Amino acid sequence: MAAMAGYPADVPEAVDVAVLDGLRSMRLRKRPINAPKEDEVQLQINCVGICGSDMAYWSKGMAGGFVPLDFSEEGLNQGYCGQMGHECSGTVKAVGGKVSHLQVGDRVAMEPGVPCSDCKLCRNGRYNLCPRMRFIGSAVNRVPGALCRKFNHKASYCYKLPPNVSLQEGAMLEPLCVSLQGVTRAKVGCGHHVFVSGAGPIGLMTAMCAKAAGAATVTITDMVESKLEKAKEIGADFTLKADTPNLHEALEAFIGEKFDMSFECCGVPAALNSCIEVTVPGGTVCVVANMPKQVPLDLQVACRHEVDIIGVYRYCNLYPRALAMVASGKINLKPLISKTFQLEDVQNAFEHFASGEPIKVLIQPNPPEQMV
């Protein structure tokens, strides 16, 4: 096999990878994989979740305002373009010489972002903001994702799964950490009344994390009735269609007052203004979803009420905590799994998720029963 750009000529193996080779078009290609470096493990990828940013790349060619994908043949041959997948779990197949905490056969969840560990932000413990972050499946960093049969990853960002945590749940730790980052930053605690705008995976996991943190009530809005039903199933106290007339008054009627914290998890500017409106003076609005670059915002209300508006960018130092919450039963991710697909059916998986009804769609490049 001819060498591809960015890879040495004597590659030991070529593996199947799912590549976005045009808008709304996924197909399998062969790409080379080397032996893991000394500080890496090679994983047989078992589960990969589709997330909102993946869908944005699939449907628009870009996500979160970052650089667009290059769908030219030259771009596709660079070894990163269009190879998505950052919500991942897998089984260790080989370990580098300096890896001591993992061994062949271990089941792990992958934290997809590997920071530089040297910059001021990393040293201050906020490595999610590292300007040299290598985040897999990102067109910005030009780092290939793990939507493939095998993948090499830095071992210190792989977390061994206990026997009672499935590989499916392991892949879902990544979005769970996003929600946990928001709930942690907003300082949700016992007795708080929480509002969540959007009942997609992140919104539902935010509700779960808020409940686990001691929230007295969680109220969720969405436009899709089936997602509101799922919200009730996972423990939301109140649900409401987002297009309800006099929405603000209807929301406050549930608890008889405004909310202590509100979380915007759907990416709609009007919903962000609703979060500000229904938050108690002195409360907190946490923006979890990706927003357009320009958002018309009623800052006067936020300033007059001293409502703090904070953001979330991925997560930091939370994988062990998220894993412990799932292992202990504090968080149950299984009800959020809508459907699983094989790697060969990756195009169908994206089309199914695009319908708007599913919560979490998982792709299994190597199902557990087909481990080799």
Rank of each mutant, 00 (worst) to 15 (best):
I45V: 15
I45H: 05
I45W: 09
N46K: 10
C47S: 11
C47M: 12
C47D: 12
C47A: 10
V48Y: 10
V48K: 06
V48N: 09
G49T: 02
I50V: 08
I50P: 03
C51K: 04
C51F: 02
C51Y: 03
G52K: 07
G52H: 01
S53A: 12
S53P: 11
S53F: 01
S53Y: 00
D54C: 01
D54V: 00
D54Q: 02
M55G: 02
M55Y: 02
A56M: 13
Y57R: 06
Y57Q: 08
Y57I: 05
Y57F: 15
Y57K: 01
Y57E: 04
Y57L: 05
W58C: 00
W58E: 05
W58R: 00
S59V: 04
S59H: 11
K60N: 08
K60L: 13
K60A: 06
K60W: 07
G61A: 08
M62Q: 09
M62N: 11
M62T: 12
M62S: 14
A63H: 03
A63M: 08
G64W: 03
G64A: 12
G65S: 00
G65Q: 12
F66Y: 13
F66S: 13
V67I: 14
V67K: 14
V67E: 14
V67D: 13
P68Q: 04
L69S: 14
L69P: 05
L69T: 09
D70C: 11
D70Y: 11
F71D: 04
F71W: 07
F71G: 04
S72L: 05
S72Y: 11
S72C: 09
E73M: 05
E73T: 13
E74D: 10
G75A: 07
G75N: 06
G75Y: 10
G75S: 06
G75C: 06
L76Y: 13
L76T: 08
L76M: 09
N77I: 03
N77C: 09
N77A: 15
N77T: 12
Q78V: 06
G79E: 12
G79K: 10
G79C: 14
Y80Q: 08
C81D: 10
C81A: 15
C81I: 08
G82Y: 07
G82A: 01
G82K: 04
G82W: 12
G85D: 08
H86K: 08
H86M: 09
E87N: 03
E87D: 08
E87L: 04
E87W: 12
E87Y: 06
E87P: 12
C88A: 14
C88V: 15
C88K: 03
S89T: 09
S89L: 04
S89A: 10
S89W: 10
G90S: 09
G90E: 08
G90W: 03
T91Q: 14
T91C: 12
V92D: 01
V92T: 02
V92S: 06
V92L: 14
V92Q: 11
K93F: 03
K93S: 14
A94W: 07
V95Y: 03
